[in-house]
Design a protein around this nucleic acid. Structure first.
Lengths: 333, 333
DNA sequence: CTGAAAGCGCTTACAG
DNA sequence: CTGAAAGCGCTTACAG
């Protein structure tokens, strides 16, 4: 059997309510007593029973994160940040890879205080039956979940892509390609494509000079494959904007393997704003919401709606930031 | 506020203990009453409070899985199987990517009934302080966790690799390479290398004819990179054994991209026994513990030690199975 | 500053 | 077959 506050109380010769207070840093207990109790708890390897705590306090101090997989680097990074941000506020984070409906049900039973949903990777999930819940939910982008206490935190993707085009055009590039997942089923990917097109139009590029190469997905291998196709292209662009970190990594590898010099032969700007972009073979210029801020804002949004007990809906859109690195230069370089 | 059994009881005009029994399919309650209560619960969207359940029943019906990431396909597949196997027995599975010490502490607080640990991917974790727990733990391979109720479930990797060599030698191949993560820090990878060497020795291959190409890691890109190196090799092997699914996928792509025909120019056998191997560009012969059985055995081992209340330690080693597919043929083909 | 009491939502003997 | 009671481990007014 596990150690309980009653065990500690018996050994310390106090009542167990005093132990409870001591362990929760209540000012109501004498410093001396508290120290003794805390030390005893440590020695006994006491871990509070979250079930009991949550039952009486009506909060579990637990947040559930529903995610499709950890296959994308940028996603793993973001989950890590969310975890850190919530841990700072004393929340535990648990993950589930169950289908949305089951995951939400599990989270309800566990009485989590909040839920974070990544819709991003599973467009199929849209077909899943709608789940309604009173638990505060933060969704990254839109969601099929209908909650009465609901926030969307998202990145201004369009602006990000527009900014990337403007930046490269400003460096004198006239032929620019967007390479990323351009499947129509995923609205977020479509936003990036739209932003790219708008940016190209605004910069006076013609349809022939600014074009989209659909990688068909956002993994390393999609990027690598797209990179190989890029190498064989007639009239290769002088600059490329990639739609996600893993695509960038794969494409960069393909380009370097193919004998292309980056940035000399090809300038590169990547969507996703994570430190890993600086650690690639060539440090890559990033555009997007910086992951630290992104994770922080997700955590904040969740804590916000958790603090509020009434129904609430809000949206936060993070501004894109472009961070210059060595991967893009003036053309002709 | 969420719906509780008291709410249901009031609306149904019965005591809440009757509701509890009805909802738990107790034979002590009249079929008629039960049906009425169950229907009412459904209508109200009742979800049982796991905290309360776990507090009184002393079991949470929850299993924690501690994993470093979901980056490897074979690992994701295995986690999925474990989840299914445990769900069948009524257990919920929650994941954590916290550092081992923190994850175990969280699982203790959540009062999970069992823990599954994947040591595999993080050799660094060995340096982490040892964690002792009374919660039943199943580790895939050895672990730095010291529990009093502990089981190891693992694959006979050596045998698997030996079998792969024997199979290819039996097909007439004389030059065979093992390509996979051969870093010395990871004992599991070392086992595969050792099995390969033993198999080569037993089949009478010389050191020049059977060699190891260290991919330096087990991801797709490690496999792809190794595949490119393979293409440039003088005296290329006629058959290759790869050490993990993602390595196989990357290497196969590199080989096909490089103009090599599989299996005509190169026979291929992959470690890891997952259905995804059949879905690659060329269906690949697998050797290892079939993932269904693997997941099932992990779940069984955990349920076993969970059923037993005393201290217990046991090891299960799964036999490797070789499943023939189109990727390997007789040499000269 | 400390302790006794009530109660969180549930299950499970026990009595009827 | 149904209900009243005790209790799981904890927190939190409330009394002292």
């Amino acid at each position: 059997m596990n150690v309980t506050i009653k065990d500690i109380a018996r050994l310390a010769g106090v009542s167990y309510s005093t132990v409870s207070k001591a362990l929760n840093d209540s000012p109501l207990v004498k410093t001396d007593t508290r120290r003794r109790i805390v030390e005893l708890a440590r020695q006994l390897g006491y871990e509070p029973n979250l079930a009991a705590k949550s039952l009486v306090s009506r909060r579990s101090m637990t947040v559930g994160v529903l995610l499709p997989s950890l296959e994308r680097v940028a996603l793993s990074a973001l989950v890590g940040r969310i975890n850190d941000a919530l841990a700072t506020r004393g929340y535990e984070v648990i993950l589930s890879i169950l289908p949305p409906t089951s995951a939400i049900r599990l989270f309800q039973r566990l009485q989590v205080d909040g839920i974070v949903v990544f819709e991003d990777i599973t467009p199929e999930a849209r077909h899943v039956e709608t789940v309604t819940t009173d638990i505060p939910v933060v969704s990254i982008g839109a969601s099929h979940l209908v909650g009465s206490r609901f926030a969307v935190v998202d990145v201004r993707r369009k602006d990000a892509l527009r900014e990337a085009v403007r930046y490269l055009a400003g460096l004198g590039h006239k032929r620019i390609a967007y390479i990323g997942d351009a499947r129509e089923s995923d609205s977020k990917q479509q936003e990036k494509v739209a932003g790219f097109m708008e940016g190209a139009f605004a910069c006076g590029l013609s349809a022939g000079d600014a074009f989209v190469l659909n990688s068909g997905g956002n993994t390393w291998r999609h990027g690598y494959d797209a990179g190989r196709r890029l190498l064989e292209l007639d009239g290769r662009p002088t600059a490329v904007i990639t739609g996600a970190f893993d695509v960038t990594a794969g494409l960069l590898r393909a380009a370097l393997d193919g004998g292309l010099r980056v940035p000399d032969d090809l300038s590169l700007v990547s969507y996703d704003h994570i430190p890993q972009l600086a650690e690639l073979d060539v440090p890559v210029t990033a555009v997007g919401a910086p992951v630290d801020a992104f994770g922080e804002r997700i955590a904040e949004a969740l804590l916000d709606i958790m603090a509020d007990s009434g129904p609430i809906r809000r949206e936060t859109h993070l501004d894109a930031v472009l961070e210059e690195r060595a991967s893009a230069v003036r053309f002709p370089g």
